[in-house]
C-alpha cells in the first residue's frame, strides 16, 4: 500500500498539484479536467497572429528521446516554443550494455546545465518514473512514452478530442481495438477514461495481443470486433507494428485486417454518431480502411491539432508545480 501511495505522489506536490507528468494513475478526475480546461484555453492559439504565450519564458526544456519519434517530438517542441521556452532536442541512441549508466549520466549532465524540464521518451517501462524519483527530482519530467507503460499526453489529447466531439464523458461506451499488449497509449487511455467516468471501456483484440489480467483495470475484453463495436460512441484504433508477425502474435497483416480492421460496414455496428480515433500514424488497409480514416466520422487529423494544446497545458502546469516546490 505504501508503495502505491509513493507512486502516485511522485508526480504531485504536497498540495496535489502536478510537478511531473508521468502517468494517469493516481491523478484525480478534477486534475484531469483541469488539464483539459487548460488545454481548451490554448486550443485556438494556432489561429492567432502571435502564437505565443510567455508562461515558460526563460525556461529550458530538453526533449530527451531515447527512442525514435518524429511526430510526438515535433508537437512537444512546438508546444514548448509556443510557451516561449528555450528548447533543446536530443536524440540519444542507447548502448544496450550500459543503459542504466548512460541514462543516469546523460540526465545528470543536462541537469547540471540547469534545464528546467525534461520531456522523456524511453523504451523501458517506468523510465520516466525512475528519472523523476531517483535521478533528477527537481527537473519537471514529462513522460512522452515509456515502454509499454504509459503515454499520458497522448491519452489526454485523446480525452480532449472525445470531450470536444461528445461534450462530456458521461454514459459513453468506448472500444479500443488492436495491439493492446504492446500499447502504452491504450494503458493510459484506459486509466483516463475510467477516471473521467465513461460508462464502459472495451478492449478488442486477439488473445495474443491482450495483456494478462487487463480486466483488473475495469475493462471488458472482446476477441470479436463485431461484438466489441456494438453500440459504442467512440472507436479508438491502435497502430499495428509490422514486427508483430515475426513474434508469432499474428499470422499476417491480411488476416488481421480481415478480423480486426475497421471497415465502413463494421463501423455501422457502432452508434450512428460514433467517432473514430487513432493515435497515428495509421496503417491503411491493416487496422483501418481508407474510407473510414478519411470519412466523416474520423477525427484523426483533429487529434493531431489538439496534441499541441494538450501538451502546452501539461507542460505549463507541471512547470508551475515544480517551481512552487523549488521555492519552498
Amino acid at each position: 500500500m505504501e508503495a502505491k501511495k509513493r507512486t502516485c505522489q511522485v508526480q504531485l506536490t504536497a498540495d496535489g498539484r502536478l510537478k511531473h507528468f508521468l502517468g494517469i494513475q493516481g491523478l484525480s478526475q478534477a486534475l484531469l479536467t483541469e488539464i483539459l480546461d487548460t488545454a481548451e484555453s490554448f486550443a485556438n492559439m494556432g489561429e492567432q497572429a502571435v502564437k505565443k504565450v510567455p508562461l515558460l519564458r526563460g525556461r529550458t526544456v530538453v526533449n530527451l528521446f531515447f527512442e525514435n519519434s518524429t511526430r510526438t517530438r515535433a508537437t512537444f517542441e512546438l508546444a514548448a516554443k509556443r510557451l516561449s521556452a528555450d528548447v533543446l532536442n536530443l536524440d540519444i541512441k542507447t548502448s544496450s550494455t550500459a543503459k542504466g549508466e548512460t541514462l543516469m549520466d546523460t540526465l545528470q549532465n543536462m541537469e547540471a546545465m540547469h534545464a528546467d524540464m525534461f520531456v522523456v521518451r524511453h523504451a523501458d517501462s517506468g523510465a520516466a518514473h525512475f528519472i523523476a524519483s531517483q535521478i533528477t527530482p527537481r527537473v519537471a519530467i514529462i513522460n512522452a512514452g515509456d515502454g509499454r507503460h504509459a503515454h499520458p499526453t497522448q491519452a489526454m489529447l485523446d480525452m480532449f478530442t472525445i470531450r470536444r466531439h461528445k461534450g462530456s464523458f458521461e454514459g459513453l461506451k468506448v472500444a479500443i481495438v488492436g495491439d493492446l499488449l504492446h500499447s502504452r497509449v491504450a494503458r493510459s487511455q484506459i486509466r483516463a477514461l475510467s477516471t473521467l467516468g465513461v460508462e464502459e471501456v472495451r478492449v478488442v483484440a486477439p488473445k495474443t495481443l491482450i495483456p494478462t489480467g487487463i480486466d483488473s483495470l475495469g475493462v471488458k475484453v472482446f476477441t470479436r470486433l463485431e461484438q466489441g463495436l456494438k453500440d459504442v460512441d467512440v472507436v479508438i484504433m491502435l497502430r499495428l507494428q509490422k514486427e508483430r508477425m515475426s513474434g508469432a502474435f499474428l499470422p499476417s497483416e491480411n488476416e488481421f485486417y480481415h478480423q480486426y480492421g475497421l471497415t465502413q460496414s463494421r463501423l455501422r455496428l457502432a452508434k450512428p454518431d460514433a467517432i473514430v480515433m487513432h493515435p497515428g500514424p495509421i496503417n491503411r488497409g491493416v487496422e483501418i480502411e481508407s474510407a473510414v480514416a478519411d470519412g466523416p466520422q474520423s477525427v484523426i487529423l483533429q487529434q493531431v491539432g489538439y496534441g499541441i494544446a494538450t501538451r502546452m497545458a501539461v507542460m505549463s502546469m507541471a512547470m508551475s508545480g515544480q517551481l512552487q516546490e523549488r521555492s519552498q
Binding site: 517501462s125 515509456d146 515502454g147 509499454r148 507503460h149 494478462t212 489480467g213 480486466d215
Partner: peptide, 13 residues
C-alpha cells in the same frame, strides 16, 4: 510475473 500488475506497469511478463 505475468499478471495484472505487470500488465498495468507495462512490464513484460
Amino acid at each position: 510475473h505475468e499478471g495484472a500488475q505487470a500488465s498495468q506497469l507495462g512490464l513484460q511478463g
